[in-house]
Structures are given as C-alpha cells and as structure tokens.
C-alpha cells in the first residue's frame, strides 16, 4: 500500500510538473523538502526526548500498575471469557492502562501476552482477541504526548490544549469500534 502510494505521489508530481511547465520549482522542491525534514526533526527532538523521559518515569514508578487494578471490573464485562484466566486478565489490564497513559512501548508486550493467551482459549477466545485488537487500534490515549511534543516544537501557543478534543474523538472512535465489532460479530455468525 505505502509502496504504491509513494510511487504514485512521485510519478504524478513528475507528470504534473512537466505538463504545467514547473520543472525547475518541482526539482528544487524535492531537495528543499528533504532539507526541511531534517530541520523539522531537529526541532522536535528536544520535546520528544522530554516526553519520553516523562513516560519512562511514569512506567518505572508503577503508576500504570495502580491504574490497571482499577480497570479490572470493566475488563470482566468486555472480556467475560478471557478475564476468568488470571494471567490474561492481568495482561489485559496492563495493556489498557499503558494505552490510557500513552505508554505505547509498555502496551504492546502486555497486549501480545494477552493475545497469546486468548488464542489458546478456542473460538470464544478468538472473538475476544478480535475485540482486543479493535480496542488497541482505536487508541484510548488520555495523554497524547508525542503529537503534543510535535505541536510544541512547531510553535503552538499551548501544545496540550487539544486534549479535550482528543478525548472526545477517542471516545467516538472506541464507541464506533465496539459497535462495529458487535454488529459484525452477529453478521459473521449468520454468514457461517
């Protein structure tokens, strides 16, 4: 997909530049763009490092561990079959709380552990695995740190002021994902 997309972008730009007679500008733009990318990367490195430092501290103080025990009741409702197994339930709550805190590096290993456990539970487990995947693709972040770091270095007045909008939009996305999962699950069963 990405191969096709980027090949198309470059080829179509080439055609369009020749057709509109903007060969010189387009040729320059290719190199200028690459230079601008490096400057942009340097600009965001500082705030990116600071955010990663904060994430690491959050992870090491075990704050996400506290959050995860608060999430158990919710998980029992969403994943009734898997939550009965202690190991899976623990991995699930770790995954969810790391996602909420925006600690992507900690979320994936926990999620993968849960996924492995679920796959071993047979058909019911596999359906809950699909739900876990949908939840993880819908993003449940409370702290959108990375994008705020980029906003800060691009000169935003208040980089974190997008948070309420991110919460709302995440909620809509999770709601849509759960609804779609619920409906599609029924449809899939009928189909078989």
């Amino acid at each position: 997909m990405l191969n096709l997309l980027f090949s198309l972008l470059f080829l179509l730009s080439l055609f369009c530049a020749v057709l509109t007679g903007k060969e010189t500008e387009t040729g320059r733009a290719l190199l200028d763009g690459a230079g601008a990318a490096l400057r942009f990367c340097l600009d965001i490195t500082g705030s990116l490092c600071l955010w990663s430092a904060l994430s690491e501290l959050l992870a090491q103080t075990g704050l996400s561990g506290r959050l995860s025990s608060a999430l158990r009741p919710l998980l029992r409702r969403l994943f009734p079959r898997s939550a009965r197994e202690d190991g899976i339930c623990e991995a699930l709550s770790e995954n969810l709380s790391a996602n909420l805190l925006g600690l992507g590096n900690a979320a994936t290993p926990a999620g993968v552990r849960a996924a492995k456990g679920m796959a071993a539970l047979g058909e019911g487990g596999r359906e809950e695995l699909a739900l876990l995947v949908v939840l993880n693709t819908a993003s449940l972040q409370i702290l959108p740190g990375t994008i705020a770091a980029v906003r800060a270095s691009a000169g935003a007045a208040s980089p974190f002021d997008i948070m309420p909008a991110v919460w709302l939009s995440s909620a809509v996305s999770v709601g849509a994902g759960l609804t779609a999962a619920f409906l599609l699950k029924k449809l899939w069963r009928c189909y078989r």
């Binding site: 980027f6 369009c16 530049a17 509109t20 387009t26 190199l31 990318a37 990116l48």
Partner: peptide
C-alpha cells in the same frame, strides 16, 4: 526519545520531499 527521533527522520525526509514536490508541481 532520541532513538524515536532518529527512527522518525527517514519517514520525515521521504514524506517532506514527496509533499513539497506535490505542492510545487501544482498537483
């Protein structure tokens, strides 16, 4: 964070180059 920025750089270079071309060509 430094590793993350370093991993981001290749994607930034290709995307910026593509988008700047796209704009300059009028496409």
């Amino acid at each position: 964070g430094l590793t993350l920025a370093l991993e981001l750089l290749p994607a930034l270079v290709i995307l910026f180059a593509a988008v700047w071309c796209l704009r300059a060509s009028g496409l």
